[in-house]
Simulated scan of single mutants.
Amino acid sequence: MATNNTAKNQLSQKKNNAPSNNGGGNSVNTIQAYLKKMGPEFERALPKHMDADRLGRIALTTIRQNPKLLEASVPSLMGAVMQAAQLGLEPGLMGHCYLVPFYNGKMKETDVQFIIGYKGMIDLARRSGHIESIYAHAVYENDEFEYELGLHPKLVHKPAFGTRGDMVFVYAVAHFKDGGYQFEVFSKNDIDLVKQRSKAGSNGPWKTDYEEMAKKTVIRRMFKYLPISVEIQDQASHDETVRKDITDDAHSIHNEDYIQVEATEVEEEQPQQKEEQADEDVQKAAEGLFDQQ
């Protein structure tokens, strides 16, 4: 208990000394303090080729680039970073995984959704050791494209030169080291149905990297046919989930009332009110995190 109290006091002190971010919520310095404190937990979760310091730096850069993450509850933010650690994926521009803020209408707070990217899904599949290569491509209306199922599956794709038109299909192919293969094809309509069911459908990578998310979706659907372990299958199931803290099991956002966070004008608080609220927020967040240890 003494260790927990010390951590809470240190985080409260850091918050009092840190400048407030313009939108309210947590400051960058506060989040940095939490990431540093959780370093040993991340280190235990990470695979050998990654380290907690690098993950912390990448996570902080991602948070700086999306100020809405500063408004998120600290437990759910740390929970999303922990999911990245457990899967050995790096959030941000590399496309391995994403941290997307959402307003939790039930809890009246902003939470963070963890989304696996296209490159992250490929990385998980390759870890099985049984896959020679795995890839996905988008098909456009002017391409030559043909596929058949049944006893003798067939897939032919010849991209058009010049203007290719609108995207109409996405497919994924996996070649196994024993000589076998598996492929999956989704129409544009199939992809859009998945996008509509996702609470990130109008936000995050579905908005900024639609084609990459389409490729990820068809690879994810193909996972059940691939020679990969139950552990990796379970890791892939963490896609598009939210944790309430680092010890909580990943919980699908489809079971909750999550909506996209919209920017709103807020009444300016007095400096003393801001300081008192900041202290209260840090204390509550610290209790939520460290009482679980």
Rank of each mutant, 00 (worst) to 15 (best):
L77M: 13
M94P: 03
H96K: 04
P75F: 00
M167K: 06
M78K: 07
D111P: 00
F161Y: 06
K119V: 14
L77K: 01
H152K: 08
N66V: 11
S76H: 12
A138H: 02
F161K: 04
Y135L: 04
P91L: 14
T163S: 06
A138K: 03
L77Q: 01
D111S: 11
K106T: 10
F183D: 13
R126P: 02
Y181P: 00
H157C: 11
K106D: 14
N104C: 14
A84L: 03
F176G: 02
F183Q: 15
H157K: 10
M167H: 09
L70N: 01
G95F: 00
E144G: 10
H130A: 09
S133W: 06
N142G: 02
R127H: 04
P101I: 11
G162N: 09
K119G: 04
G179A: 09
P75Q: 06
L87D: 08
Y98M: 06
H130G: 03
R127I: 01
V112S: 03
I122E: 13
V81R: 01
D143K: 10
P101A: 07
D111F: 00
L69W: 12
V100Y: 07
E109G: 13
L60A: 08
V74H: 04
K188P: 00
F102A: 06
S133R: 10
M82E: 05
D111R: 01
Q182C: 10
F186Q: 02
E132G: 07
F161Q: 03
M82W: 00
A84Q: 08
H157F: 06
Q83G: 07
Y98Q: 05
L149Y: 05
G105M: 13
V74A: 07
V170L: 11
I134L: 09
Y140R: 05
